[in-house]
């Protein structure tokens, strides 16, 4: 008896159709694998280079190897060798071997300071001999953000100490400033005393003149006047005493200041040296910091692009709620005509 399979024309050549479908699918997968292989350089001839690093921090298998910013290969192995050092083997496409000459150096660096790490191979002398397969090349570890921070750390610590030193009430700077204050106050008082004394001395000199004028006519009054003059001189001497005492105090202060000044100057020299060090470190780091900011911005832009791409890709876009463009307000066919009234 004929089954449905025999009667229905759709079952005709079913095995052939299924076979063709299967072959097309397999061919598709093969093409895909081939494309991925080409993308990942699976089918290109390789040329290996080695380098030895002090430690393997930041180096991993599969890490890209770049030459003048172009990806030319990958890190194939990372292994621990004698002396706890790390031997890194890289596989570089054969077509780039003409650039790999004696004098090339490998270094681990990053796409900016926060980007993906990669092995950068510096271009050697074009006149030097070509490297052979499996050659050992020198390794140089480039300073990264961590190194920059580590470099800046001592300088920052010193700045902190300097600020403490300046703010210390018992410290040389504060004490010196206090002494200067006392000195200036003393000088002010001294100035007023000297003015007063000069004024008194002026009066005394006038009186002496008057005495000399009268010396011929009156001896006694002269004697009286002479006594008077002595009295005035005594008075003047008495008045000068505190001035002298103040001068003594001032000279003592100046002495103290002179003693502390050399050490203060030395400390200020040290402060200036530290500030210079910090500013030069910051100056050196400024372009890198700018680069970090640029890279961060670029990373954010890239992230946005990726999200946008994913959102517009099938089937993700089917899973996302449809965003209606608020173009037209609804027609809304509601009207009061839809109301039934008592008289209707």
């Amino acid at each position: 008896m004929a089954t449905v399979k025999d009667k229905d024309p759709r079952f005709k050549n079913l095995e052939f159709k299924a076979g063709v479908m299967l072959m097309v699918a397999i061919a598709g997968i093969v093409v895909l694998v081939l494309m991925l292989g080409i993308e990942r350089d699976l089918f290109t001839k390789k040329f290996s280079l080695h380098f030895v690093a002090e430690n393997g921090t930041g180096i991993s298998k599969g890490m890209p190897v770049k030459l003048s910013g172009f990806k030319v290969g990958r890190v194939s192995t990372v292994e621990l060798i004698e002396g706890a050092r790390v031997r890194v083997t890289t596989e570089v496409s054969q077509k780039y071997t003409e650039y790999l000459r004696e004098g090339v150096k490998a270094m681990v660096t990053k796409e900016g300071y926060i980007g993906d790490p990669y092995v950068d191979i510096t271009v050697g002398d074009p006149s030097a001999t070509l490297l052979t397969d499996g050659a050992l090349i020198p390794f140089h570890k480039e300073d990264g953000m961590e190194e920059l921070i580590n470099e800046a750390k001592p300088a920052l610590t010193e700045i902190k100490e300097i600020i403490h030193y300046i703010n210390d009430p018992e410290g040389d700077i504060k004490v010196t400033l206090g002494n200067f204050k006392v000195l200036s106050e003393g000088l002010e008082e001294t100035r007023s005393v000297i003015t007063e004394t000069t004024r008194t001395a002026g009066g005394t000199l006038k009186r002496i003149d008057s005495l000399v004028e009268k010396v011929d006519s009156r001896v006694e009054p002269m004697m009286d006047s002479a006594l008077n003059v002595f009295g005035n001189v005594d008075e003047m001497t008495e008045r000068l005493m505190p001035v002298i005492e103040r001068f003594d105090a001032i000279s003592r202060n100046v002495e103290t200041v002179s003693e502390t000044l050399p050490s203060t100057i030395l400390k200020l020299d040290s402060i200036l040296g530290d500030v210079k060090l910090v500013s030069s470190a910051l100056g050196a780091g400024a372009p890198q910091i700018m680069e970090v900011i640029d890279n961060t911005n670029s990373a954010i832009r890239g992230g946005k692009e990726i999200i946008k791409g994913v959102k517009t890709s099938w089937p993700i876009r089917l899973m996302l709620p449809k965003v209606r463009s608020p173009h037209l307000v609804p027609l809304d066919t509601f009207s009061m005509k839809q109301e039934v009234r008592s008289g209707d």
């Binding site: 479908m21 299967l22 097309v24 699918a25 598709g28």
Partner: peptide, 13 residues
């Protein structure tokens, strides 16, 4: 094999 392989291919395409 008959169902899944073409579906994968179709999905990837």
């Amino acid at each position: 094999v008959n169902r899944v392989v073409p579906i994968i291919f179709l999905v990837l395409s």
